[in-house]
């Protein structure tokens, strides 16, 4: 075979990419983002003042810790609370399923901010009653109120995810396991939940991200999370970079979480890849 014939087997070279309207628009938009990014870096570098950073920098770290703690605690408590709610939603008993439906509908249909206000300011109206049952120390603190409201809220969302994931497992899995003589709890633990976990992973990951973002509102009820520290710093310095730093930190947390979830998902679904 001569060299000329071999060349015939190769695909023809791609035509040169012209400067179409789309390409010009796309390049302009990317250029705009690069300018915005450079502007942000330039603004943060030129307004870098060491005394300011030394004074308020540790606050940001503390705030970050509060945000992470709040989200972690609420997600865990919410996960525990979501189990009975999800069971109630799937129950054949009209009373249980109705109650669970009402719970989920209320927490998903109203703003988290309104729920937080209802707990923090609203329950404060029952101070004498709460004091008489010895719960006032709990509802007096904005931090506990935030955890209380956030846990109840995320429990409603997580219950729906859990229900959706469990119901996504085909009935045949239940029947097959039952025909092997497994007990209902065993079926749930060994057959259903492992399969449901793969379906539920992405929604759960999104819920964590939504909680990180949603947790910013606790700054309004005087909890000094990342957002609270940011607002405090801005009220002291009137320096706009306080908000930009918060934006950078939040973006980094969310992006890390998003990539982490994608990695876990790839890992868990290795056996499903073709």
């Amino acid at each position: 075979m001569s060299a000329a014939e071999a060349a015939d087997d190769l695909p023809p070279p791609l035509p040169p990419r012209g400067w179409s309207g789309q390409r010009i628009a796309g390049t302009a938009l990317v250029g705009l983002w690069v300018l915005v990014g450079l502007g942000l870096v330039w603004f943060l570098v030129t307004s870098w003042k060491l005394p300011l950073v030394e004074k308020y920098g540790p606050g940001y770290l503390y705030g970050l810790g509060v945000t992470v703690g709040l989200v972690a605690i609420s997600i865990v408590i919410g996960a525990v609370l979501s189990i009975p709610v999800a069971l109630g939603r799937m129950s054949k008993n009209r009373v249980f399923s109705g109650l669970a439906y009402a719970y989920v509908y209320f927490f998903r249909g109203t703003p988290l901010l309104a729920q937080t206000f209802l707990v923090y300011y609203g329950l404060g109206a029952f101070r004498p009653e709460l004091q008489s049952v010895g719960l006032w120390w709990f509802f007096r603190e904005a931090w506990y109120c935030a955890i209380f409201a956030f846990s109840l809220n995320t429990a409603a969302y997580q219950a729906e995810m859990l229900r959706g994931a469990i119901e996504s497992v085909p009935r045949g899995q239940w029947e097959g396991a039952a025909s092997l003589g497994l007990h209902k709890m065993q079926i749930m633990r060994k057959i259903i939940l492992p399969q449901a976990a793969i379906v539920a992973l992405r929604p759960y990951g999104n819920e964590v991200i939504l909680m990180v973002k949603g947790s910013a509102i606790v700054s309004i009820i005087t909890v000094y999370d990342l957002m609270g520290i940011t607002r405090f710093t801005y009220s002291r310095t009137f320096d706009f970079q306080s908000y930009l730093w918060a934006a950078v930190i939040y973006l980094m947390i969310v992006e890390t979480l998003r990539h982490g979830i994608e990695w876990i998902e790839r890992r868990l679904t290795r056996h499903l890849k073709r």
Partner: peptide, 25 residues
């Protein structure tokens, strides 16, 4: 969803930023 990579990049940067920031911020 366009065939032009630079347009896709610009669109993805937009969603990454505004989905990553808390609404309040």
């Amino acid at each position: 969803q366009s065939a032009e990579p630079s347009l896709r990049l610009a669109g993805n940067v937009y969603t990454t930023i505004f989905r990553g920031l808390p609404e309040l911020l």
